[in-house]
């Protein structure tokens, strides 16, 4: 891994079109600004882990062929929709 030291407002360039700037440092908190093309995916890594976890939870709690739960959910969705209008 390449390790660089930077001060506030100093930047790092990655390739031709990605620029990272250190915006602020406060204690152990580093605030970064990232300029990149829109099609570059930028995620805090814990976001991907959160989605993984959420998917596992959603899949384990979803008895797809339970008619009672389906009916209940369908009714509640319908009620909520009617209440909005």
């Amino acid at each position: 891994m390449l390790v660089l030291s930077r001060k506030v407002n100093e930047t790092i360039l990655i390739g031709d079109d990605i620029e990272i700037v250190v915006v602020a440092v406060a204690g152990d908190n580093v605030r970064l600004g990232i300029k990149a093309p829109k099609d570059v995916k930028i995620l805090r890594s814990e976001v991907y882990e959160d989605i993984q976890k959420q998917n596992v939870e959603a899949a384990s709690g979803s008895p797809l062929h339970n008619k009672d739960i389906s009916a209940k959910l369908q009714q509640m969705l319908g009620d909520r929709l009617n209440n909005k209008e």
Partner: peptide
Amino acid sequence: ITLCLSDISKSTVN
């Protein structure tokens, strides 16, 4: 939808 089976009203959506 992440179903909360014990209380469906607590279900969440991603």
